[in-house]
Protein backbone atom coordinates (compact mmCIF):
# COMPACT_ATOMS: atom_id res chain seq x y z
CA UNK A 1 0.00 0.00 0.00
CA UNK A 2 1.38 3.39 -1.00
CA UNK A 3 1.53 5.74 1.95
CA UNK A 4 2.93 9.23 2.17
CA UNK A 5 4.71 9.60 5.49
CA UNK A 6 6.27 12.90 6.53
CA UNK A 7 8.52 12.85 9.59
CA UNK A 8 9.64 16.04 11.31
CA UNK A 9 9.71 18.03 8.10
CA UNK A 10 11.32 21.45 8.35
CA UNK A 11 11.62 24.02 5.61
CA UNK A 12 13.48 27.32 5.61
CA UNK A 13 13.71 29.99 2.98
CA UNK A 14 16.63 32.34 3.56
CA UNK A 15 16.09 33.21 7.24
CA UNK A 16 12.35 32.60 7.48
CA UNK A 17 11.11 29.32 8.89
CA UNK A 18 8.24 28.10 6.73
CA UNK A 19 7.68 24.67 8.29
CA UNK A 20 8.86 23.29 11.59
CA UNK A 21 8.86 19.66 12.72
CA UNK A 22 5.74 18.66 10.82
CA UNK A 23 4.76 15.00 10.74
CA UNK A 24 1.74 13.46 9.11
CA UNK A 25 0.63 10.40 7.19
CA UNK A 26 -1.65 9.93 4.20
CA UNK A 27 -2.93 6.49 3.23
CA UNK A 28 -5.41 5.22 0.63
CA UNK A 29 -9.02 5.30 1.81
CA UNK A 30 -8.56 8.51 3.79
CA UNK A 31 -10.03 11.94 3.09
CA UNK A 32 -7.79 14.38 4.92
CA UNK A 33 -8.42 18.11 5.00
CA UNK A 34 -5.46 20.41 5.62
CA UNK A 35 -6.67 23.53 7.41
CA UNK A 36 -5.01 26.73 8.49
CA UNK A 37 -4.97 30.46 7.89
CA UNK A 38 -3.23 32.08 4.92
CA UNK A 39 0.53 31.82 5.33
CA UNK A 40 0.31 28.89 7.76
CA UNK A 41 2.59 26.87 5.46
CA UNK A 42 0.06 24.48 3.95
CA UNK A 43 1.41 24.72 0.42
CA UNK A 44 5.02 24.63 1.67
CA UNK A 45 4.26 21.49 3.67
CA UNK A 46 2.84 19.80 0.58
CA UNK A 47 5.77 20.86 -1.58
CA UNK A 48 8.34 19.73 0.96
CA UNK A 49 6.64 16.37 1.54
CA UNK A 50 6.45 15.73 -2.19
CA UNK A 51 10.12 16.55 -2.62
CA UNK A 52 9.36 19.50 -4.89
CA UNK A 53 11.39 21.50 -2.42
CA UNK A 54 14.14 19.95 -0.38
CA UNK A 55 13.24 19.98 3.32
CA UNK A 56 15.87 21.52 5.58
CA UNK A 57 15.08 18.87 8.17
CA UNK A 58 13.24 15.57 8.38
CA UNK A 59 12.24 13.24 5.56
CA UNK A 60 9.15 12.33 3.64
CA UNK A 61 8.72 8.89 2.16
CA UNK A 62 6.34 7.59 -0.43
CA UNK A 63 5.83 3.86 -0.36
CA UNK A 64 9.01 3.70 1.73
CA UNK A 65 11.18 5.78 -0.62
CA UNK A 66 12.51 9.25 0.13
CA UNK A 67 10.50 11.67 -2.01
CA UNK A 68 13.55 13.86 -2.61
CA UNK A 69 15.34 11.00 -4.30
CA UNK A 70 12.32 9.70 -6.17
CA UNK A 71 12.32 10.69 -9.82
CA UNK A 72 9.42 12.99 -10.71
CA UNK A 73 7.71 10.46 -12.97
CA UNK A 74 7.52 7.66 -10.41
CA UNK A 75 6.43 10.14 -7.75
CA UNK A 76 3.64 11.34 -10.02
CA UNK A 77 2.49 7.76 -10.57
CA UNK A 78 1.97 7.42 -6.81
CA UNK A 79 0.61 10.88 -6.01
CA UNK A 80 -1.44 13.09 -8.28
CA UNK A 81 -0.69 16.66 -7.20
CA UNK A 82 -3.14 19.41 -8.06
CA UNK A 83 -1.60 22.76 -7.17
CA UNK A 84 -3.62 25.96 -6.87
CA UNK A 85 -5.22 26.52 -10.22
CA UNK A 86 -3.33 28.81 -12.59
CA UNK A 87 -4.46 29.88 -16.03
CA UNK A 88 -3.32 27.60 -18.84
CA UNK A 89 -0.60 28.95 -21.10
CA UNK A 90 -2.54 27.98 -24.23
CA UNK A 91 -6.24 27.54 -24.97
CA UNK A 92 -5.95 23.74 -25.17
CA UNK A 93 -8.76 21.30 -25.77
CA UNK A 94 -10.28 20.03 -22.48
CA UNK A 95 -9.62 16.38 -23.37
CA UNK A 96 -5.93 17.17 -23.96
CA UNK A 97 -5.60 18.90 -20.60
CA UNK A 98 -7.14 15.88 -18.88
CA UNK A 99 -4.79 13.64 -20.87
CA UNK A 100 -1.82 15.53 -19.39
CA UNK A 101 -2.71 13.71 -16.19
CA UNK A 102 -1.33 10.61 -17.90
CA UNK A 103 2.04 12.28 -18.44
CA UNK A 104 3.73 10.08 -15.87
CA UNK A 105 2.67 6.93 -17.69
CA UNK A 106 4.35 8.24 -20.83
CA UNK A 107 1.32 9.54 -22.69
CA UNK A 108 1.91 11.93 -25.59
CA UNK A 109 -1.01 14.16 -26.54
CA UNK A 110 -2.77 13.24 -29.75
CA UNK A 111 -1.58 9.64 -29.75
CA UNK A 112 -2.63 8.08 -26.47
CA UNK A 113 -2.16 4.39 -25.89
CA UNK A 114 -5.33 2.40 -25.20
CA UNK A 115 -5.04 2.27 -21.42
CA UNK A 116 -4.19 5.98 -21.27
CA UNK A 117 -7.17 6.83 -23.48
CA UNK A 118 -9.45 4.70 -21.29
CA UNK A 119 -8.20 6.35 -18.09
CA UNK A 120 -8.81 9.77 -19.66
CA UNK A 121 -12.35 8.78 -20.66
CA UNK A 122 -13.06 7.45 -17.16
CA UNK A 123 -11.83 10.70 -15.61
CA UNK A 124 -13.88 12.79 -18.04
CA UNK A 125 -16.91 10.66 -17.24
CA UNK A 126 -16.36 10.87 -13.48
CA UNK A 127 -16.13 14.66 -13.57
CA UNK A 128 -19.14 14.99 -15.85
CA UNK A 129 -17.12 16.65 -18.61
CA UNK A 130 -18.27 14.52 -21.54
CA UNK A 131 -20.15 17.41 -23.12
CA UNK A 132 -17.18 19.74 -22.73
CA UNK A 133 -14.33 17.42 -23.73
CA UNK A 134 -13.94 18.89 -27.21
CA UNK A 135 -14.19 22.51 -26.07
CA UNK A 136 -11.26 24.89 -25.72
CA UNK A 137 -10.33 25.37 -22.07
CA UNK A 138 -10.51 29.17 -22.36
CA UNK A 139 -14.25 28.92 -23.02
CA UNK A 140 -15.01 27.19 -19.70
CA UNK A 141 -16.43 28.81 -16.57
CA UNK A 142 -14.55 28.74 -13.26
CA UNK A 143 -16.51 25.71 -12.01
CA UNK A 144 -15.94 23.82 -15.24
CA UNK A 145 -12.22 24.61 -15.12
CA UNK A 146 -12.01 23.27 -11.57
CA UNK A 147 -13.69 20.06 -12.72
CA UNK A 148 -11.29 19.82 -15.65
CA UNK A 149 -8.31 20.03 -13.31
CA UNK A 150 -9.85 17.41 -11.01
CA UNK A 151 -10.31 15.15 -14.02
CA UNK A 152 -6.66 15.69 -14.89
CA UNK A 153 -5.65 14.58 -11.41
CA UNK A 154 -8.00 11.57 -11.51
CA UNK A 155 -6.73 10.53 -14.94
CA UNK A 156 -3.38 9.65 -13.36
CA UNK A 157 -5.25 6.95 -11.40
CA UNK A 158 -2.65 7.30 -8.68
CA UNK A 159 -3.33 5.79 -5.25
CA UNK A 160 -2.93 9.21 -3.59
CA UNK A 161 -4.09 12.69 -4.52
CA UNK A 162 -3.09 16.05 -3.06
CA UNK A 163 -5.16 19.07 -4.01
CA UNK A 164 -4.29 22.62 -2.98
CA UNK A 165 -7.47 24.70 -2.60
CA UNK A 166 -9.41 22.97 -5.38
CA UNK A 167 -12.55 24.87 -4.36
CA UNK A 168 -11.01 28.36 -4.33
CA UNK A 169 -13.19 30.98 -6.01
CA UNK A 170 -16.07 28.56 -6.60
CA UNK A 171 -19.71 29.14 -5.73
CA UNK A 172 -21.20 26.89 -2.98
CA UNK A 173 -22.79 24.45 -5.40
CA UNK A 174 -19.54 23.95 -7.29
CA UNK A 175 -17.63 23.54 -4.03
CA UNK A 176 -19.94 20.67 -3.15
CA UNK A 177 -19.48 19.19 -6.59
CA UNK A 178 -15.69 19.22 -6.39
CA UNK A 179 -15.71 17.73 -2.89
CA UNK A 180 -18.20 15.07 -4.01
CA UNK A 181 -15.81 14.17 -6.81
CA UNK A 182 -12.95 13.88 -4.32
CA UNK A 183 -15.15 11.83 -1.98
CA UNK A 184 -15.93 9.47 -4.88
CA UNK A 185 -12.21 9.14 -5.51
CA UNK A 186 -11.68 8.18 -1.88
CA UNK A 187 -14.62 5.78 -2.03
CA UNK A 188 -12.93 4.09 -4.99
CA UNK A 189 -9.95 3.45 -2.73
CA UNK A 190 -7.82 6.58 -3.17
CA UNK A 191 -6.32 8.69 -0.42
CA UNK A 192 -6.83 12.45 -0.67
CA UNK A 193 -5.19 15.35 1.12
CA UNK A 194 -7.10 18.54 0.37
CA UNK A 195 -6.31 22.09 1.42
CA UNK A 196 -9.58 23.81 2.29
CA UNK A 197 -10.57 27.13 3.79
CA UNK A 198 -14.18 26.23 4.55
CA UNK A 199 -14.06 24.45 7.92
CA UNK A 200 -17.70 23.47 7.68
CA UNK A 201 -17.14 21.65 4.40
CA UNK A 202 -13.93 20.12 5.66
CA UNK A 203 -15.64 18.72 8.73
CA UNK A 204 -18.42 17.36 6.59
CA UNK A 205 -16.29 15.55 4.01
CA UNK A 206 -13.01 14.72 5.68
CA UNK A 207 -12.32 11.71 7.85
CA UNK A 208 -9.37 13.56 9.36
CA UNK A 209 -8.42 17.18 9.82
CA UNK A 210 -4.87 18.46 9.99
CA UNK A 211 -4.70 21.90 11.59
CA UNK A 212 -1.74 24.15 10.83
CA UNK A 213 -0.55 27.47 12.12
CA UNK A 214 2.76 29.32 11.78
CA UNK A 215 4.44 26.42 10.03
CA UNK A 216 3.48 23.85 12.64
CA UNK A 217 0.89 21.12 12.74
CA UNK A 218 -1.21 21.90 15.83
CA UNK A 219 -3.64 18.99 15.67
CA UNK A 220 -4.36 15.94 13.54
CA UNK A 221 -7.46 13.85 14.10
CA UNK A 222 -11.08 13.21 13.29
CA UNK A 223 -13.44 16.21 13.06
CA UNK A 224 -15.20 15.19 16.28
CA UNK A 225 -11.90 15.05 18.16
CA UNK A 226 -10.24 18.16 16.85
CA UNK A 227 -12.97 20.62 15.92
CA UNK A 228 -13.84 22.98 18.75
CA UNK A 229 -14.56 26.65 19.28
CA UNK A 230 -11.24 26.97 21.05
CA UNK A 231 -9.43 25.42 18.07
CA UNK A 232 -11.02 27.89 15.68
CA UNK A 233 -9.98 30.72 17.96
CA UNK A 234 -6.40 29.39 18.19
CA UNK A 235 -5.96 28.64 14.52
CA UNK A 236 -7.95 31.30 12.74
CA UNK A 237 -8.43 33.87 15.45
CA UNK A 238 -12.21 33.86 15.11
CA UNK A 239 -15.03 33.53 17.63
CA UNK A 240 -17.33 30.69 16.67
CA UNK A 241 -20.22 28.66 18.02
CA UNK A 242 -20.30 24.96 17.23
CA UNK A 243 -23.56 23.13 17.45
CA UNK A 244 -23.21 19.53 16.30
CA UNK A 245 -21.90 19.91 12.78
CA UNK A 246 -23.02 23.50 12.33
CA UNK A 247 -20.32 26.11 12.75
CA UNK A 248 -21.28 29.75 12.96
CA UNK A 249 -18.50 32.28 12.87
CA UNK A 250 -19.25 35.44 14.78
CA UNK A 251 -16.22 37.62 14.20
CA UNK A 252 -12.56 38.05 15.02
CA UNK A 253 -11.40 37.25 18.53
Amino acid sequence: MTELVAKNIGLKSQDATLIEAASFRLAPGEFVALLGPNGAGKTSLIRASLGLEKPSAGTATLGGEDTCRLDPMSRARSVAYLPQIRPLAWPNIVRDVVALGRFSSGAALGRLKDDDARAVERAIEACDLSGLAARRADTLSGGELARMHCARAFAAEAPLLIADEPTAALDPRHQFRILDLLADYVARGGGALVVLHDVQLAARYASRLIWMKDGRICADGSPSDTLSAKRLADIYGVRAQIDGTVISMEGPV
Binding site: L52, A80, P83, G101, F103, S104, A108
Partner: peptide, 21 residues
Protein backbone atom coordinates in the same frame (compact mmCIF):
# COMPACT_ATOMS: atom_id res chain seq x y z
CA UNK B 1 11.50 17.49 -25.16
CA UNK B 2 8.11 17.95 -26.83
CA UNK B 3 6.10 16.00 -24.28
CA UNK B 4 7.49 18.14 -21.48
CA UNK B 5 6.49 21.27 -23.40
CA UNK B 6 2.90 19.99 -23.43
CA UNK B 7 3.12 19.47 -19.68
CA UNK B 8 4.32 23.05 -19.19
CA UNK B 9 0.98 24.25 -20.55
CA UNK B 10 -0.27 23.73 -16.99
CA UNK B 11 2.40 26.04 -15.53
CA UNK B 12 5.63 24.96 -13.88
CA UNK B 13 4.17 23.88 -10.54
CA UNK B 14 1.49 21.67 -12.04
CA UNK B 15 3.89 20.38 -14.67
CA UNK B 16 6.27 19.13 -12.00
CA UNK B 17 3.19 17.77 -10.23
CA UNK B 18 2.41 15.49 -13.17
CA UNK B 19 5.98 14.25 -13.25
CA UNK B 20 8.02 16.69 -15.36
CA UNK B 21 11.64 17.17 -14.40
Amino acid sequence: TGRGLSALTLGEEAASGIGLN
